[in-house]
Design a protein around this nucleic acid. Sequence first.
DNA 1: GTCTATAGGTGGATAGAC
DNA 2: GTCTATCCACCTATAGAC
Lengths: 199, 199
Amino acid sequence: MLTSEKADTRTRLLEHARDVYLEGGPSHFSLREVARRTGISAAAVYRHFDNKEGLLSAVCSEGFQIFSGYLMRALAEPTPIDRLRAAGDLYRRFAVENPRDYRVIFMTDADDLGVGTSLPSTPATSPTFQFLVDRVRECIEVRAIARGDAVEIAVNIWAHVHGLASLRLSGHLSSVGDDAAFARFFRTSTDRLLRGLAP
Amino acid sequence: MLTSEKADTRTRLLEHARDVYLEGGPSHFSLREVARRTGISAAAVYRHFDNKEGLLSAVCSEGFQIFSGYLMRALAEPTPIDRLRAAGDLYRRFAVENPRDYRVIFMTDADDLGVGTSLPSTPATSPTFQFLVDRVRECIEVRAIARGDAVEIAVNIWAHVHGLASLRLSGHLSSVGDDAAFARFFRTSTDRLLRGLAP
DNA sequence: GTCTATAGGTGGATAGAC
DNA sequence: GTCTATCCACCTATAGAC
């Protein structure tokens, strides 16, 4: 019910806009290109969105939804520490499998993302980040990791996995090897951090 | 001897180009703006550089020099683990005190940085990264951290501090507080990782 | 809702005079 | 070396006809 089968112009506009955005990033995003692909004139876009920013912010929300979808799958695991580990792994998978979405969400200025728009604010205050905090909290409760400020530890973990993911996407970790090798390295790396977080 | 006192046009061009680049990033970098600030016509720029890319790549090398300057100061510390810790702290300081340089070096696509230019390739293969590897290696030698592949551990540490720095610069860690608070958080965070790396 | 036409702006790069 | 003049491409946004 979220999207109807027969796509109206607004929906198609949104789809192509997402393509354009994810292909070239914020700087190469243009109304004209979106209009071209959608098959309407650039002027017609203004019947559906206020301006460039309006269309842009609508696009950004989408990647965030996809990201949430990845993380939530961690709940399938049986124990708190398994769920935390799975969340880390799914974070990596989202980054590798949706590199452009990842860039949009995490590698763009928080300011550029949504200035007064309807965006889910910054990741740090989103329900998705709260999800990570919850995973940390339950790990603390069962003594899987040392007592401490769950939010601070969550930020700590987030920064670590983001560092790995963003360096990878920037091409700075090409020396690690292919995606499978990166997956192994990612696991080793996060395990080292978890070791530091252990009681 | 590296730069003469009386700046020739090429040098002034380079200085203003650096300003423009660091203010707006790669996407807002324009020859015309650089020429405007330097006080010459846009066309004249082509007497000094082949094209936009030529000027751009010349600019990028500079920030890297500054970065190296920061890290090297870690050598003043007495022990390997102190030097490693200091390197981490100086990494943070470089990022906070030269945010735009940091973005250029570490938050830009490796491809966009220098395609066939005279750039020091990617950070991962640079002498500066080798510096970190050396710090790790000497820590392993004195058993300050557990035995292991020094390069892999160095990448691990790099990703961690980069994650913290880049999230900070993107505005995603504003909840942490001011720069002093971030410095404390940074230290706590890296100490946790070092704990995980301990023998 | 969509179009064409248009206004007014950015930019990169070149030609040719001086 | 530097200039002006120019060309061409791209863009956002609006006005008004249909």
